[in-house]
Structures are given as structure tokens and as C-alpha cells.
Amino acid sequence: MNILSDLRKGLKTPKIYLPILLLLVCLLIPLFGISPYFIHVLAVTFFYISYSSSWNLLAYSGQASFGHAAFLGIGGYVTTIFTIQTSIPWLGLLLGALVSAFAGILVGLTCVRLREWFLALVTLGFSIIMVALTIELHWLTGGVYGLAVPSLLPSVNHYYYGMLALTVFLVFIIYLITKSKIGLAFVAIRENESEAKATGIDVTKYKLLAFTMSAFFAGLIGAFYAHFISYINYQIFHLDYSFWPIIISVIGGIATIEGPIIGSSLMFCIIEFLRVIRPLVETIDPVIKLNYPKIQVLLMGIILVVVVIKMPKGISPWLRKYLISISK
């Protein structure tokens, strides 16, 4: 298998050591007795890495979903309802992912023929329809009040490792997909759809495959996330949940493996930095004190606009160039 030989080759270059080092650091962090709050925030960061990666896989095939929260929420709701009804743990995760993948096929069937704007609108509309459905089917989903999700793991640290394992697993799987023949077809479709068709790639099939896989991963993450935050209501379909993976992936680097990781880490750094300097800044003006969370989001919005205008490929190519220049 050429991926294994790639890996063996990769071990000789310094490129492979950076992810391994990062992974080691992530594995060791809870052992240093860091506060549960920090562990929680890191776990949420992992959630955003894996969730954005699932979005990015779809973007890899040239399709940008603007309602990915629908798949996240379906995964979350299915696992919640299943676990409550049958009290069988863990199986719900897989079930949620499968139902989400099925929804992905349905949405994908509508979307494969559409252009960018329509695709954005249909996926977004699907997540808004899901809100109405969730509230309407209150006997099943708890309506506006939502449901308490049964716990899978005993402590924050366990969830931290669970989230880490899930993230590493997903990023690795997505890496394998993008390196395979399927990934090559995705790139061909993304770069030029009619040329891809001319070279004999079944565009519809591959676009649908991208949708299904992306929805499957998003459902899996959503299911685990629901257990992690231990409560689910219709807010999981909120536009913010749909837009954050886009913001993160675009800032990090759209259609790259490292993009979501860089984007999420940057978001984590910004939010933590703002939290640390908060007492200092708040003394300046009462307006800042009152609107602190909004200032964080405003800052992310400004970064997004600047990144789209100044470096449309995101931070990742720039960072790569920088790493190459210092390794020489």
C-alpha cells in the first residue's frame, strides 16, 4: 500500500514529527493538574477541529455547506433519543452517524446539481427546517426545552481523551481519504468540474460520496459532543454552529488537512488571550466590560474578512512557507 510507504518515507523527514509532538503534548496535558475549565476548553477546541475537518472534507470536493449544523444536530439527537429509550451506551454514536449520513445522501442528491449560491442556500435552509421539525416533534425531541443527554464517561478528563481520540481518528481518516484515489477525484472536481467529467470521473457519484462521508463524520462528532455537553436542544441547529466551521477552515486554510487544526488553535488562542487580558482591558471602558463576548466574535469576523481579502488560501500556505524557510 503506497500510503504505508509514504508514511515510512515521511518518518525520515522532519515533517512527520510536528504532528507527533503535538499529539504527545495533548496526551500529557491532563497529567499536569491543569484546571478542569482549561481541559474543557481544550476538549471544545478538539471538537471544533474535528467538526471543521468534516466540513473541510466537503469543501475538498468543491462544495461548501452552509448548514452543517443540521448533520451535527441529527447525530446528537439520534444518539440522545436512542440512549434514553434503550439505555445502551456507545451504540448511539454509530447510529447517529449513520442517520446523519443518510440525511447527507438526501441533501446531497438535491445539491449535486446546484451552483454555489443555491448549494449554500439549500444546506442552510435544511438546518432551519430541522429547527422547525425538532420543535414540532416535541414528543420525541422535547421541543424547545430539549433533552438531558445521558453521560457516557465519568469525568472531564475522560471526555478530553475521548474527544482527542475521536479528533485524531477523524483527521487521520480524512487524511487517508484525501491521499487516496477518491481524494484525487475530489480535487479534480474542485478545480474544474467539466474537465473532471471529460477525464471520465463520475462527478455526481463523487460529490454524493463527499456529502455522505462529511455528514457521517459530522454526525459522529455531533453525537459525541451531545454526550459531552450533556444537554441538547434546537440551538444545536443555530446558524453559529453552521458558520464556525467555515470561519475556522477558511482562516486556517480551506481544503487542507491542517487548516481546521490551525484555525481552531488560533481561535482557542485568541479567546484564551482575550480572557486573560480581560481584567486589564475592562478597566479602560465600561462598554468593553459589558460587551466582552461580542468583541471576541467581532475580532474573529474581522480576521475572517482580512484573511479572505488578503490571503484567500488561509494561513496554512504561509505557515508552510515559513516552516520550510526555518528548516533550511
Partner: peptide, 18 residues
């Protein structure tokens, strides 16, 4: 690219709203 334009307007939503 069409995607850049859509994402730019998405960023503007966040900037203007907040």
C-alpha cells in the same frame, strides 16, 4: 472564486452584527 465572495459576506455578517 464564488466561494470567497460568499465567505466574505459571511464575515461581514459577524462584523456588522457584533
Amino acid at each position: 472564486s464564488k466561494l470567497n465572495e460568499i465567505i466574505l459576506s459571511l464575515g461581514l455578517i459577524y462584523v456588522l452584527q457584533n
